[in-house]
Design a protein around this nucleic acid. Sequence first.
DNA 1: ATGCGTTAATTTATCGATTAATAAGCCACT
DNA 2: AGTGGCTTATTAATCGATAAATTAACGCAT
Lengths: 336, 336
Amino acid sequence: MPIRRVATLKDVAAEAGVSKVAVSVVLNGSRSNVGVSAATRQRILDSAERLHYRPNPIARSLRLRSTNVIGLYSGSQYALARGGAFLSQIIAGLQDGCEAHSKDLLVHGTFRGQSVDDIYQELANGKIDGLVLHAPGNDALVNLLSDASLPCVVIASPVEALPSVVADDAGGMRLVAEHLHAAGHRRVAFRQSLLRHSSSLRRTAGFCAAAASLGMRVQMLSPGPADDQLGPEEVALLESPRTERPSAVVCWNDTSAYGFMACCAARGIEIPSDIAITGFDGFSAPGIPRWQLTTVRAPWRAVAKTAVDLLVAHINGEQIPRETALPVTLKTGDTV
Amino acid sequence: MPIRRVATLKDVAAEAGVSKVAVSVVLNGSRSNVGVSAATRQRILDSAERLHYRPNPIARSLRLRSTNVIGLYSGSQYALARGGAFLSQIIAGLQDGCEAHSKDLLVHGTFRGQSVDDIYQELANGKIDGLVLHAPGNDALVNLLSDASLPCVVIASPVEALPSVVADDAGGMRLVAEHLHAAGHRRVAFRQSLLRHSSSLRRTAGFCAAAASLGMRVQMLSPGPADDQLGPEEVALLESPRTERPSAVVCWNDTSAYGFMACCAARGIEIPSDIAITGFDGFSAPGIPRWQLTTVRAPWRAVAKTAVDLLVAHINGEQIPRETALPVTLKTGDTV
DNA sequence: ATGCGTTAATTTATCGATTAATAAGCCACT
DNA sequence: AGTGGCTTATTAATCGATAAATTAACGCAT
């Protein structure tokens, strides 16, 4: 077989003995003022088939000012944490959406070390029709994106100025609070995030509100410099007598919970008899866990899919809701 | 701020009072016959700066027949298995490579239900300059890709006709064999893959060869319909008296090992005292595992990075090796 | 026969950039 | 003075597709 030069519109037109425009009209059924007779139409279709014609997406993009590509930008260095489960769920969901809407998915790098303006230019230079944004990090970038022409949807952790798709953080924490209450816990601690982004703040606030309404006392904790290191309050807590400390530690996410559990294990503290633990995220880990964490299962794949759905709607000029929260479920394990 | 219409070459040219060509020459230093005086050059640079000019990548792609985009296509439905650790490592590595070479990464969907010819057309229609291929699945697709003009590098599990970057499967299994031998094991079993692709076959062959040279007896096992289900030989093995059966089961990858371990646990068989287990892949799972699996750590991120390096070299017309195997290391846990 | 509307097509312009071809100005050399 | 060479530009052509404007032919009513 010779080197396969892809057939162009011109080639098909020549083969069928018509003009390029006729071919274009026949092959993508545009509703222009151009008419084509049945005979000609068939001749064109045959030629296109014979030459294996496929329109060049680049040329089309240039002319139509639309690439049918959706970008993913994550400013988070932590997206690969949690064993990559989060990132891969997100990408799977974006793929679901892209396949449903016949789009392609472009995964941007972190643009580490580049200025906000450069990042913005890089994102908005016409390669993508819309952007799914995770952990933009920088407010300046959000500002640029929000008054610009690039349609944008934020996932997981919302920002004020852009539409977002999130998991029901507060609702999930309410489930946790209710579960703990039902299990008899009345005095609990909440292990906050190292990073105070909107999603973690909502979980904190959501849990506190739910706990308060159930009449539970809540003590706030801050972890050490990493998720698997204890902060001073946490050390104090674990060293105080069992009866004088909270009976459960609610962690803002699974990674934090695993880190805390590792610390407990290292100190010979039994889970859940000495202390109960809960998390948030609910990725199923490979391997055989020592404890099955009681946690909130957040539908990250569906979040990403929904983000694409909304983004595409936005691109098509529709109004989309400022915030969409997907319901979460409690996944009971053996740590409570 | 008004709606930010991106400046084009024409705009910059008008601003600076010169022709488009002069601007193009100045801004991307092409070695054409076009000369530009120092004064004009400066005026152009100033105008470009003032208008925040960024070249339109689509237009450039059309003209240069090169998009600076690299595609990832995985035909595997299992890429999301293992908690997505594999996929996210691969994507991270591809990102590393793309950032190093100023490329973008386009993640293709599975093209489920489409014909091989359609998949090929979709991949080779000019959107990407090169393709990183994982688990192509179909030989027909590989054939199309191998005699076509789309540069291609296969990762993880090589195919005959295309250059590939892999982990040293045989070498890793030799490490396992030596480790088991040193631990006193003389009669072992090898748990094969459900899918007989080249990588798993190499691990099988590599282990058998190494075991033979060390004087160990090897029995082959096939899993049940899923990794966490036992095949008939495996049931027979676990039900036979301890002294009359292999003392270790070498699994072709971690997922298989975890599946087998779950079955052992369910039957009350102690690990590693009753039976030793090993795996291959070495992702660090989130959470606190009941057993730390003894396994081979394969550098998947580096594999992906290397694949991009080679792909870019190939795109630039260089010769690249048919196969590149990256070294692996043994990660000892407590299952042997 | 003239004019109008419809169908079936074609030619021309455009998207934004790069490359090839061409032209103008200036100096030097014979 | 005329030719050649060098610098500094400009205009024209191209990548492949689509949209707008234009043209040709035909039927039909007046």
